[in-house]
Amino acid sequence: MPKRAWQKLSADAGAKGHRVYDWALAGVADGQAGLRRLLVRRNRNSGELAFCRSSSATPAWLTTLVRVAGRRWTIKETFQADKDWPD
């Protein structure tokens, strides 16, 4: 992806502060109805990439998709806390 495609954004605040990554969007042509895109997250230290597919009836801003993707960590932490709860 071109250098200008990447934006430095925080997905959400974590235990150690905001989780800041580089983010980019790529179009996906799969013949399905609606707007399909691939959200790409790049670790600013290691360069490791992570991917998330998005689908919407109308275009969504990169910042909105990043915020939604960041909710994944909150959900994961909630499930983990529930598992640790005594029976």
Rank of each mutant, 00 (worst) to 15 (best):
L49T: 10
F51T: 07
D87S: 15
R41E: 12
L39E: 02
R4P: 02
S56P: 11
I75E: 15
G17S: 08
R41A: 06
Y21M: 06
T64V: 13
G31W: 08
N43F: 00
T64R: 07
R44D: 04
K16V: 12
V68A: 15
E77G: 11
K3V: 07
L9A: 02
R72G: 13
N45C: 08
W73I: 10
L65N: 06
A81I: 00
D84P: 06
A24H: 00
Q32T: 13
G14N: 11
R72E: 12
A29I: 15
A5V: 03
G27E: 12
V40W: 08
A15Y: 03
V20R: 01
A57F: 02
A69P: 02
L49Y: 00
W61Y: 12
H18M: 04
Q32A: 15
L65A: 05
D87G: 14
W73A: 09
D12A: 14
A57P: 04
H18C: 03
C52Y: 11
A24I: 12
F79W: 08
V28R: 04
M1P: 01
V40C: 10
Q80N: 06
G47P: 10
Q80K: 09
Q32F: 10
R41I: 01
K8C: 04
P2A: 07
F79K: 08
R36D: 03
N43Q: 09
Q32N: 11
R37L: 13
C52H: 14
P86D: 06
R53I: 14
N45M: 08
Q80F: 04
L9M: 13
N43I: 00
D12C: 14
A11W: 02
S55E: 15
T58K: 14
K8T: 01
P59E: 11
